[in-house]
Design a binder for these strands. Structure first.
Length: 283
DNA sequence: CTATGGAAGGCATTTACCTCA
DNA sequence: CCTGAGGTAAATGCCTTCCAT
């Protein structure tokens, strides 16, 4: 599943526009703790090291549970949260009403209709700030963040899930644009090469014309080995020297007995060294 | 050592609600 | 006031990984 993301993990530089240095306590927590499960080697945001082994318990969870199989993991587990989400809803509604000015009392009704909760600006800012540092949360971090923001852990979890989805979507769009540009460049280059092939074929069909053409490449003498080498220089003096090397005035014949092809410097490069006008760094 | 089942987490998709032009 | 589009919180289902047995 996550493997699909690897192809897209080309480096995201989305601007979140949130200032740093907001949550010292959380920062401490994030620096020192991480999830004890490490399934996230396939995290679509590489380089984010969320999954270090927890070392310190900076922020006490609400229950104060500290058993090895602490209820942090069991209570914050998705299944359990989902099971209790119904009963959480009431408290959730009550605890998260700040920031939204919609009518809270009459809207809920408790009739099972889910009320859309708008997160407050401060909540969103803290969540964004946290996300900038870690795109995933371990149960401890989730618990601490939820406590700090007066949210349910499930809410924090959902927010991070949706945030990751949004990030991935944006990255996909960026990658799509990049690939489009690459495709355009390659299409242009392909057209140019096809045109060149056509011209060459036309020249081959009319050898006389080819003979009388000014050589597309010039010859220079290597001062050390005194051999004639094909050069892309087009200065007239060099051409004159090159022509004078062959009193017959005819085109030189290279070592394999073929005429020198009008090669562009780009085409002369090995494939690996050719540049396709692609941006050197990702946008 | 291997097979297996449960727990837990993540992701993709969908739904429902809210806001705004 | 009505409405459609867009944004997003939340629900659901599936998959993968880890771990105990």
């Amino acid at each position: 599943m996550g493997e699909k993301d690897d192809g897209l993990g080309l480096g995201l530089s989305l601007c979140l526009g949130i200032s740093q240095n907001q949550q010292p306590c959380l920062k401490k927590l994030f620096q020192s703790s991480a999830t004890n499960r490490t399934p996230d080697t396939r995290s679509f945001l590489r380089g984010i090291d969320v999954n270090q082994a927890p070392t310190v318990t900076d922020c006490e969870e609400e229950g104060g549970v500290s058993s090895p199989n602490s209820t942090i993991s069991s209570l914050s587990g998705k299944r359990n949260e989902r099971e209790t989400v119904g009963e959480e809803n009431e408290a959730e509604r009550a605890s998260c009403s700040h920031g939204s000015d919609d009518e809270e009392g009459g809207g809920g009704d408790g009739d099972g209709s889910r009320k859309k909760l708008r997160l407050s600006r401060e909540q969103s800012m803290v969540l964004e700030e946290t996300f900038k540092e870690h795109s995933t949360l371990n149960p401890k971090q989730k618990q601490a963040l939820a406590k700090q923001l007066n949210m349910k852990p499930r809410q924090v979890e959902v927010w991070f899930q949706n945030r990751r989805a949004r990030t991935k979507l944006k990255q996909t769009e960026v990658d799509c644009e990049y690939l489009k540009r690459c495709c355009d460049d390659l299409t242009r280059e392909n057209r140019r090469l096809q045109k060149e092939v056509q011209e060459l074929r036309a020249l081959k069909l009319s050898p006389n014309l080819y003979m009388n053409m000014k050589p597309p490449t010039t010859l220079t003498m290597c001062p050390s080995c005194e051999r004639v080498a094909v050069s892309s220089s087009s200065s007239s003096s060099a051409a004159a020297v090159a022509v004078s090397t062959f009193p017959s005035g005819r085109q030189p014949v290279v070592s394999n007995g073929q005429r020198p092809m009008p090669l562009s410097p780009w085409a002369a490069l090995p494939i690996q060294q050719r540049r396709f006008n692609a941006p050197t760094s990702r946008p």
